[in-house]
């Protein structure tokens, strides 16, 4: 290694060394395979003033998971985890249904949903940052009881029928603005806002520092507890947004089964995007790619005619594959296997 800095590393080399290449490659491969399975896969057409097509559909469907995964990426960046996002979605959905039944303004109700998510984040953040409980354990509490809270909110107004009509929420679900589905635009807006908060302030650096080494960060003058607390609040808010979109899709509050296992998908998206569960790094863009990979897989199974239940098995294999790829031990074994063959 020369000690002179080399700003002009060849582009292809930089790309091949980049962490970003693998998830993107995975996405591309899946999409190419899809093209073989279904010849019309790449077609995009305009129906009733809105873009339609498999590619649009993948993005459209990935939005809730991607929103949750973005929040999760920040929490994971602090070396934490949030298992309660599914419950937060259930709670925010229940609040939306409740307030619509109560006759509130539908735009104000969105604020309720997001604030509810934030408050759930405050709860989680308090347990983790100020009581010092391990993140998996601390967020397990809300994970277990959150859906119960959602059911309870349903009960507040009788609860026999938590479904509702709302043109405004309908617009969030199926509407479009200038050909592009509204929720994709909403997602882009949220993503940019989050990116600005994380990357255009020092918050992202602080989160990564705390996740990398909390003790050292404290001595460097960072209030590690406060940073951890804030990350859970952000995660809660993101789950609140996701809850809103999922509730808009179903026009009802179903705390028992809404967003089941979404925490696992979100964690998977972060891991596919190159985030380590050991904390220390946040990749917002790559997390979105991770969410797209998961949705693209699901879509591929749908169009290939396999029963949708296979999706779970494919996901499991993807998890295992990513794990093996990240493990030094496994890589060594594979390398040794190939070397052994070469030597003979």
């Amino acid at each position: 290694m020369s000690s002179v800095s080399q700003p002009s590393t060849p582009v292809w080399k930089r790309i091949s060394q980049s962490r970003a290449i693998w998830p993107i490659l995975a996405l591309v491969v899946i999409l190419i395979v899809d093209g073989f399975i279904s010849p019309n896969f790449y077609n995009i057409r305009i129906v009733e003033g809105r873009l339609f097509g498999n590619l649009i559909d993948i993005v459209y469907r990935a939005v809730p998971t991607a929103l949750v995964a973005l929040g999760m990426a920040i929490v994971i960046g602090t070396k934490g985890i949030d298992l309660s996002v599914g419950s937060i979605i259930a709670i925010s959905g229940a609040i939306i249904a409740w307030r619509i039944q109560a006759g509130d303004n539908h735009v104000v109700i969105l604020a309720y949903a997001v604030i509810a998510g934030g408050l759930c984040g405050v709860w989680n953040g308090t347990l983790v940052a100020f009581l010092g409980i391990q993140p998996i354990i601390a967020t397990l509490i809300l994970m277990v009881s959150g859906r119960g809270v959602g059911m309870l909110i349903n009960l507040i107004y009788g609860g026999t029928d938590p479904s509702f009509e709302s043109a405004f929420l309908q617009g969030l679900s199926t509407g479009s603005i200038g050909y592009i589905p509204t929720r994709i635009l909403l997602f882009i807006a949220i993503f940019i806002a989050l990116w600005l908060v994380v990357r255009k302030t020092a918050l992202g650096l602080f989160v990564e520092s705390v996740g990398g080494n909390a003790a050292a960060s404290n001595l460097a003058g960072i209030n590690a507890r406060r940073i951890i607390f804030v990350s859970y609040v952000i995660c809660g808010v993101m789950a609140g947004w996701a809850g809103m979109i999922m509730t808009a899709d179903t026009h009802t509050s179903d705390p028992v089964s809404v967003a089941l296992y979404i925490e696992l998908d979100a964690i998977l998206a972060v891991v596919i995007g190159g985030g380590s569960l050991m904390g220390g790094r946040i990749y917002l863009g790559m997390t979105v790619i991770g969410a797209l990979v998961i949705q693209a897989l699901t879509t591929s199974i749908l169009i290939s005619g396999l029963p949708p239940e296979y999706n779970l098995i494919i996901k499991a294999l993807v998890v295992l594959f990513v794990l093996l790829l990240q493990s030094d031990n496994a890589r060594k074994q594979i390398v040794a296997l190939f070397r052994g063959k070469h030597n003979e």
Partner: peptide, 29 residues
């Protein structure tokens, strides 16, 4: 290792982090 540096972060980030925390998170360097 355990109290000084954040091993995953770059040299640059490790150097400026105290300065940054002194300025507060809203005024990024």
């Amino acid at each position: 290792k355990s109290e000084g540096l954040v091993g995953e972060l770059s040299i640059r980030e490790n150097i400026i982090i105290s300065m940054q925390s002194k300025q507060g998170w809203l005024k990024p360097i």
